[in-house]
Nucleic acid binder design. Sequence first.
DNA 1: GCACGTTGCTACAGAAAATGTAGCATATAG
DNA 2: CTATATGCTACATTTTCTGTAGCAACGTGC
Lengths: 108, 108
Amino acid sequence: MAKRAGSKNRSVRGSRTGRPIMALLDLLGQRWTLRILWELRDTPLTSRALRTACDEASPTVLQARLTELREAGFVELGEGGGYGLTPLGRELCETFMPLHRFAERWKK
Amino acid sequence: MAKRAGSKNRSVRGSRTGRPIMALLDLLGQRWTLRILWELRDTPLTSRALRTACDEASPTVLQARLTELREAGFVELGEGGGYGLTPLGRELCETFMPLHRFAERWKK
DNA sequence: GCACGTTGCTACAGAAAATGTAGCATATAG
DNA sequence: CTATATGCTACATTTTCTGTAGCAACGTGC
């Protein structure tokens, strides 16, 4: 089915359609992706701090997601260590920032 | 670890924190959730049509997501059949509509 | 010149979730 | 009574995530 064979296969599900929105939706619709972006929204974090922020998610997935997000150009690893959003990533983050307000109204 | 026991456990990961944004991020950060909302963005679809639109995703997950989305109040099953967004769901959808434009610029 | 504490990152077994295929019960036609 | 469509489920196989442990590399201080 030509899916992610190793850690180098970036064609997240919907990418096959060629529609960028699908690729993006697929990337964001993976476990922890949205959360990672959210946690990095205004401060870079070290891999460990990010792990803590993400409710102790296993480093395996986190690392996998960080790699994907880096390859997508949304996240970068600063030279002094620590993950942060790229300008593009920050832009993306702001795109779904209204979610915060929505969530508050939605409550649950 | 007190996670989803059956199909009736709605506490998607981050909900424990009590922060609505986490619950929302967790719900949206599950496979197919974003995609489903996207596909329903302007037309209700039958379960089958939705399946087709979602690149033939397995009915098992689709059904699970639809249930969650219904319980969250974002999606509803019309009396004449077919799934559609609730007013709240439409609102949520519009919240991340800018993603479309972003994705186009992002290309890949 | 080596104990420390940190960083990013990986291994791997066990648990959980998704896939793919088939099918059920119901309803609405023809 | 077929025939087709709906929403929905079963279930074995495959994929993904979790949880825990640990690696190599970089300091900092001693």
